[in-house]
Structures are given as structure tokens and as C-alpha cells.
């Protein structure tokens, strides 16, 4: 999906920029965050401070693509729409973090809402907390702030074990699952059989989504991906059109040894 990776940085609305600048120079810094108390304390302990909530959004019109009733195939127009709109939202969020002088964004959530704005329209929103290192810079080699969907707890553990997040990496695939012929349905009736073309369709689309995520990760120079989520959604396209969406945080080594203190065993007395 590298072709839709077009840079969209710098297209923040004017007053968003003004607000961010005010936040940066403000008389006294005030931060906002969606971190829980424990996440906040862990982020501080890891040597970071929260700077503020950063958001990117895009309202997107998803085009139209005809489908062959009996054919398993990727719907590339829809795949591209879903990817490009997420990319827009993410890069705007990244841009906001950049403006704030953040090292990265943690706890990113990527939401898609269909239909609220009208048929064919979807709203894509990326929200996270921008953080800045109190010590040395933690910006990855690509120079932009890192993004990650890790919680404060996972972020702390990752840093303690000698890894650093590079960025969110994602891949998707919208796929049309073929309808069965009457003869096929008749043969399967009353039998225990695998629906081979359904299995095949799900496999295909999931593999495509994961492959794209991995390609993106290796392009950004990550050594591995942690906390991968794979979602299967229909987004209201009907029962035979599904989207597989894979997202995770690409990581690199921060130091060669990955020794962490031996954990203690505890038996909590709470239920």
C-alpha cells in the first residue's frame, strides 16, 4: 500500500496550528491526556511527560465498486479508501504531535464511524497522547514522532526491556466473498463440510492485510511488530463484503541487552 502513502503533512487547519502554538508557548504549560492514573505514573517513571491529546480526523466519501456475484476478489477501490482515510487521520495526528515538539504518541486509537454523516461517508479519527522525553530524544530515525497503540503499561515494559517504538504500522484488505451456486448449496445441505471458498476468501484477505502491515513495518525500519490486532469488520457493506484490518506497533532495539529485573510473584487478595 506504499502507493497511497502520500504525504499529507502540513494540511492542518490554520486555527489548529494556532492552538498548538499557543499550547507550546503558553504562559504555563497545561497538558491534557486520556491516560489513566497508572499509565500517567508509568509514563513519568519511564522518563516522559505528557504534552497533550493529539487528534487527526478525516470525513471521507467512499467510492463505488461493482462486484461479481460469484467471485472471490479484493475490492481495491474500497481497500484504498479505507486505507487512505486512516492514513490522512494518522498523519494529521502525527503532524499535531510534531508541532507540539513531542517525541511520540502513545495509546493511539483509530476509530471508524459509518453513516453518521450520511450514506457512503465515513469518519476516521485517530486520538492519542503526545509525550516528550525528559532526557535524550526518543524520536525515531525517520525524524517524525513515533506513534503507537501501546498502553502506558506496555510502553513502560517495552522501554524497560530495551526496545523503542518506531511507529504504527497497518494493512487492510476489503474483500468480496463469493456467493454459492445453488448446486453447491445443495451438495452441502445436511452435511458436515468445510465451505472451501469461504475459508479461502477469509484466508486471502487476512493474509493480504497482514502482508501489507509487515511491508510497511520493514519500510519504516522496524525489527518487529508488537501488540498486533487483526479486526474483521463489515462496515455495513452487507454480509459478503468484509474488511480485514491489521495494526500493530513497529519496534527497534534501543540497547543490545534485554535484561529486565526478575519479577516478583504476588497473589492479590482482591477478587
Amino acid at each position: 500500500m506504499a502507493d497511497t502513502n502520500g504525504s499529507t503533512a502540513g494540511d492542518l487547519p490554520q486555527h489548529a496550528l494556532e492552538r498548538l502554538n499557543r499550547m507550546k508557548q503558553g504562559e504555563r504549560r497545561l497538558w491534557t491526556s486520556d491516560l489513566t492514573v497508572n499509565e500517567f505514573l508509568l509514563v513519568r517513571e519511564a522518563g516522559f511527560e505528557p504534552l497533550g491529546l493529539v487528534v487527526g480526523s478525516s470525513i471521507y466519501h467512499i467510492g463505488y465498486q461493482s462486484q461479481l456475484f460469484r467471485k472471490n476478489e479484493e475490492l481495491t477501490v474500497l481497500t484504498q479508501a479505507m486505507y487512505h482515510a486512516r492514513e490522512l487521520a494518522m498523519s494529521r495526528m502525527e503532524e499535531e504531535a510534531d508541532q507540539l515538539g513531542a517525541d511520540g504518541v502513545i495509546g493511539v486509537r483509530l476509530d471508524v464511524n459509518r453513516y453518521e454523516w450520511g450514506p457512503g461517508l465515513a469518519e476516521f479519527m485517530a486520538v492519542g497522547t503526545a509525550v516528550r522525553s525528559l532526557g535524550e530524544s526518543h524520536r525515531p530515525a525517520h525524524g517524525k514522532p513515533f506513534t503507537s497503540d501501546l498502553s502506558g503499561q506496555d510502553f513502560w515494559t517495552l522501554l524497560k526491556s530495551g526496545y523503542k517504538p518506531v511507529g504504527l504500522t497497518m494493512g487492510n484488505c476489503v474483500y468480496h466473498v463469493a456467493h454459492q451456486t445453488l448446486a453447491q448449496s445443495m451438495r452441502a445441505m445436511g452435511q458436515n463440510v468445510e465451505m472451501a471458498n469461504f475459508t479461502q476468501a477469509l484466508y486471502d484477505s487476512r493474509e493480504l492485510a497482514m502482508e501489507r502491515m509487515q511491508t510497511e513495518a520493514s519500510e519504516m525500519g522496524a525489527e518487529g511488530i508488537v501488540a498486533v490486532q487483526i479486526q474483521e469488520r463489515s462496515h455495513g457493506w452487507g454480509s459478503h463484503v468484509i474488511e480485514y484490518f491489521a495494526i500493530g506497533t513497529g519496534v527497534v532495539q534501543g540497547r543490545p541487552d534485554h535484561v529486565v529485573p526478575e519479577p516478583q510473584m504476588v497473589l492479590p487478595l482482591t477478587d
Binding site: G107, D149, L150, Q153, D154, T157, V226, A227, V228, Q229
Partner: peptide
């Protein structure tokens, strides 16, 4: 948590 699912770092 709301941010992670499936495989966590742990």
C-alpha cells in the same frame, strides 16, 4: 485494555 488486545507485550 482498550488499547491492546490479543498478544500483549507480557
Amino acid at each position: 485494555g482498550p488499547m491492546t488486545s490479543g498478544e500483549t507485550l507480557a
